[in-house]
Design a protein around this nucleic acid. Structure first.
Lengths: 216, 216
DNA sequence: GTCTATACTTGGATAGAC
DNA sequence: GTCTATCCAAGTATAGAC
C-alpha cells in the first residue's frame, strides 16, 4: 500500500519541502535576503541544514521556490477578491484587504527581498523577473476590466497603470515593513477610495444597478 | 604650512573617505546589500579593506554614510529642479528628469537596498527610516505647493500623496533595475504628464501667464 | 594613514553513516 | 530521507609594522 503512486516512497519528504519553503518565506520576511541562509532556514523548518541542498540543490533555488509558492497562492487569492469587485471603488477595497493580508503573511516582503537580493547573485535577476511578470499581467487585467466604464479609459493604459500598481505595492510594503507602521499606507488607500468613487460619479450611473439591489 | 587648520594633518584622508563612500554606493547599486562587503567596497575604492573600519568603524556605518551622502546630494538637486516647476505638469517633468538621473547614478538603488537590507542587521531599520523621512517631507512640500491651485487640493492630502510618491519611486527603481529596462517607468511618466495637464485644464487658466510669456 | 597578517565567525556545499 | 562531520570560501574585525 505504499509507493504505488508516482510519488517516491519515503515518508515526510513533502512535509520537509513545505517546511523549508515556509522557513524561507519567514526568514526573508524577518531577516531579509542577507539573513536567509541555509542554516537559518533549516532552523526555522526544524531540520538539518544539509536538507536544503538535498531537496533544492542550492539556497537560491529554495528562495525561488518560496517565491513560486507565494506567487501561486497570491494569484488564486487575488483572482477571487477581484472577481467580486464590480467598480473602481470596490477594486480599491479589494486591493486594501489583500494588501494587509500580504503584509501580515510576508508575501510582498518575499518579493521585495528577492528583487533587492537579485543584484547580489549572478543570474538571479531574470528568474525573479519571470516570476513577477504574471503579477503585472494580473493587475493589468483587473484594471482593464474596471477602467473601461470610466472616463479614464482614454488616458490610462491598463498595462502602464499595472506597472505603477505593482511598483507602488512593492514600495508601500518596504516602507511599512521598515518602520513597522502601515498607517501611512492605509491612509493612502482611504484617499484612493475617495478618488475612485469620484471618478465613478463622473462616469455616471450605468444602466444596471440604479441603487437598491433586488433579486429578480 | 600644514596642520594649521582644524583639519587633521594627514594627507589624503578625506579622499580615502570619499572613495570609500563612492565605492559603497556603487557596490550597493551593482551587487546589492549582500554584496556590499568591506572587501568589495575597498576593492572599488582602490584601498585596503581595513580602512573601512579605521574610517567608519563598521561596514554598516559606511553604508549609512553612503545613504547620507546620497540624501544630501539629492535634496539639493531636487530643490533646484522643483523650484523651476510652476504647475503640475512641470512637476512631472522635473520628477522624470530627476528619476533618470537617480537611476543612472544609483541613488535610488542605495535607498532600496538599504531598506531591504535593514531587515538583516539589528538596529539598522530606524537609522534608515530616519534618513528617509526628509525625502517624504520634501515630496510633501513640493506637492503641497503645486496642488493648491488644482481641484485635487480637496481630495488629496500632500503628505499622504508624498508617501505614495516615495513608495512609487522606490518600486519603479527596483523593477527597472531588476530587468534593466526603464521603458515601463518612462511610459508611466508620459501618462502622468497627460493626466497632469488634464487636471490643470480643469482648474482653469490662472490669471497670470495667459499664454505667451513676455518679460516686463 | 595605510598596509600586511591574522584571529574568529558564518555560510555554501559535499561525503558518508544510519 | 535525514543526520553528523567536514571542507572551503568569504566576511568582520583587530594588532602591529611602516
Amino acid at each position: 500500500m505504499k509507493a504505488v503512486m508516482g510519488r517516491p516512497a519515503a515518508a515526510g519528504a513533502q512535509e520537509t519541502r513545505d517546511a523549508l519553503v515556509r522557513g524561507a518565506i519567514d526568514a526573508l520576511k524577518e531577516q531579509g535576503f542577507a539573513g536567509a541562509s541555509a542554516r537559518e532556514i533549516a532552523r526555522r523548518a526544524g531540520c538539518n541544514q544539509s536538507l536544503v541542498f538535498y531537496h533544492f540543490g542550492s539556497v537560491t533555488n529554495l528562495l525561488l521556490a518560496a517565491l513560486d509558492e507565494v506567487s501561486a497562492a497570491r494569484h488564486a487569492h487575488y483572482q477571487a477578491a477581484v472577481e467580486r469587485a464590480t467598480g473602481l471603488g470596490e477594486l480599491v477595497d479589494a486591493a486594501e484587504a489583500v494588501f494587509e493580508e500580504d503584509l501580515d503573511a510576508g508575501h510582498i516582503a518575499v518579493l521585495a527581498e528577492m528583487i533587492a537580493g537579485a543584484s547580489a547573485t549572478p543570474g538571479l535577476a531574470p528568474e525573479v523577473a519571470a516570476r513577477i511578470a504574471p503579477w503585472r499581467q494580473f493587475a493589468a487585467d483587473a484594471l482593464g476590466g474596471v477602467l473601461s466604464d470610466t472616463p479614464l479609459s482614454g488616458v490610462i493604459e491598463p498595462d502602464v497603470a499595472a506597472h505603477a500598481v505593482v511598483a507602488l505595492y512593492l514600495g508601500l510594503e518596504m516602507l511599512a515593513h521598515l518602520d513597522g507602521d502601515r498607517t501611512a499606507a492605509l491612509a493612502l488607500f482611504a484617499r484612493a477610495r475617495e478618488l475612485a468613487v469620484l471618478v465613478e460619479a463622473l462616469s455616471g450611473p450605468p444602466e444596471g444597478e440604479p441603487g437598491g439591489r433586488e433579486k429578480p
